[in-house]
Design a protein around this nucleic acid. Structure first.
Lengths: 216, 216
DNA sequence: TATGTTATAAACAGTAATGTTGATAACTAT
DNA sequence: ATAGTTATCAACATTACTGTTTATAACATA
């Protein structure tokens, strides 16, 4: 006998293309990760946000772990392309890669720290997952960043001649420092700043200015 | 009927004081953390290392989560007391807080980054875990660190007079920068260094020297 | 329309972690 | 000694997460 009064309305299915479904699920996973941290990365939670069942996720990604790997790869690529875009579309009136208003550095902090990428990145690294899928993107992106920083160093030196190898070494240090600082800032920033008394957007800006001024 | 031939020898129980038991378990948790990272922190594994059953852990800590919080708190306290010890027992021949061999800074990196403290801290923060249990320790420790750094800044200024508020502001920036960098280094260091080509202990030391030289 | 494909869902199964309970051994105090 | 306390263990219960199976709705194509 069919239960009439309490019968669930048969749920309308939305049929998506594999690409759409994957994108939808990855978006949900990302928002979940940003909201609650690594613990929230469970396929049932993600499924709920995406409005699908968890078996749909397994269908598209194979396993929960594969979804996490895909997510990590996608995030790394987004992050780098974001930063490269800033570096390489500098203002036409100012051809320096690192103009004095510190646009690029601020943007790096913004992208890495304020947007939550650092948290996601940290999660990726903490879990020791491999990023070999994004390996090539990573390498070429870093080469382009390196090139930009070397140019900036030479520009900052003005008339003085800077040997290539010196500039390259210096560039590596700078990149490493900025990256680690932005990551640390993204993770420990809120707690640490409160503790030290560096609160408010004003203090944040002051710190970043001070930091930027110290780099070259 | 008692099974004679295959009877297990009745396991001798070691009865510890609550303090000893907690310390033993925390030590095991710490070693496990270093070995496998925050994800491997599961009470049965820890129990196996400590040589107790997992219910003993639950008895002493309440829940698996509470153990993780306790571990994080303990590590924060160890970390700070470690750093303070280095800062405050500087070589008698050199009364500067930050001597030119960068002892203190190197120690900060060592403790935070190399020992895996940063990873656990990051993990804790990413999970939104609170460290309120260590709140008081944190505050007083940071005040002492702040004092030391202000002294270092004034010493570095030599004969020039530095206003208190200027030195204090500068000190906050330095502390914040060192802390975030060390955290970021602890998390992203291995991956990032490899990517950039800053590999080997030599390169690590070079970077830290370069960084230290740039602080004051 | 008929047929095939597959994205989706629901129910079920397996597994690994945390958590609970009751008994007991080791210690303390009377 | 005796009684009381509790740290410990073993066995069990529970939860929560991943993965599997089967059926079907949605769409494409002929």
């Amino acid at each position: 006998m069919v239960n009439v009064s309490t019968a669930e309305a048969p749920k309308k299915r939305i049929r998506r293309s594999p690409e759409e479904a994957r994108a939808l699920i990855l978006r949900a996973a990302k928002s979940r990760l940003k909201a609650v941290g690594p613990e929230g990365l469970q396929i049932k939670e993600i499924a709920a946000i995406a409005g699908v069942t968890h078996s749909t996720i397994l269908h598209h990604f194979g396993s929960a772990e594969d979804l996490r790997v895909s997510l990590a790869e996608q995030m790394v690529e987004e992050l780098l392309s974001d930063i490269l875009a800033v570096m390489e579309t500098r203002d036409a009136r100012d051809d320096r890669v690192f103009p004095e208003d510190h646009t690029v550095l601020f943007r790096v902090f913004e992208v890495l720290s304020d947007d939550g990428h650092a948290r996601l990145l940290a999660w990726t690294m903490l879990r020791g997952g491999d990023l070999s899928g994004a390996e090539q993107t990573l390498r070429t992106s870093f080469e382009r960043i390196q090139t930009g920083v070397v140019m900036a160093i030479k520009a900052a030196a003005g008339d003085m001649v800077v040997k290539d190898e010196v500039a390259e070494r210096h560039a590596r240090f700078i990149i490493y420092l900025v990256a680690t600082t932005a990551v640390g800032d993204g993770i420990a920033g809120p707690n640490l700043a409160e503790l030290i008394g560096l609160t408010g957007t004003e203090a944040t800006k002051d710190f970043r200015d001070w930091f930027a001024a110290r780099l070259f």
